[in-house]
Amino acid sequence: MNPVRKKRLTIILAIVLGIAATLGLGLYALQENINLFYTPTEIMNGQAPQDARIRAGGLVKEGSVQRNEDALTVTFVVTDGDADVTISYRGILPDLFREGQGIVALGRLNAERVLVSDEVLAKHDENYMPPEVGDALAKTGMLKHYEESAKGAK
């Protein structure tokens, strides 16, 4: 092989190896950092893993929000109409967190199937429904009901 070709081959090999390594690392990192979404029904059926970081969401049940003594631990119940999941969260809740609102929480399930959450997402638009929650409600037929009551409220 002549020297020019040899040099070129080395460069190309280096680039290919570099890209392969980055891609491999990238896919590995992706595998490690995926947070799957589970509906309350799926969680109650035991389809969600324990001790893995997951997303769960639904409508916050009316009258379910409870504050603890130290005032910063909050527990509340989210529902998709068929099943309920209790979520506990420590910290300051987002502005638009309200009873009856669609929310998504990130956290881990404990042995009692309570989601211990470190992040609660409630969106900044009164008409907005997180797509995951919308789908979960559509499955149980609760979405229609929710939309009608939202229209009535206006």
Binding site: E32, I34, F37
Partner: peptide
């Protein structure tokens, strides 16, 4: 139809 999200650790790590 699977719902998931990719967390910030993925982006930070890369």
């Amino acid at each position: 139809g699977a719902k998931l999200s990719v967390g910030p650790p993925y982006f930070n790590a890369l």
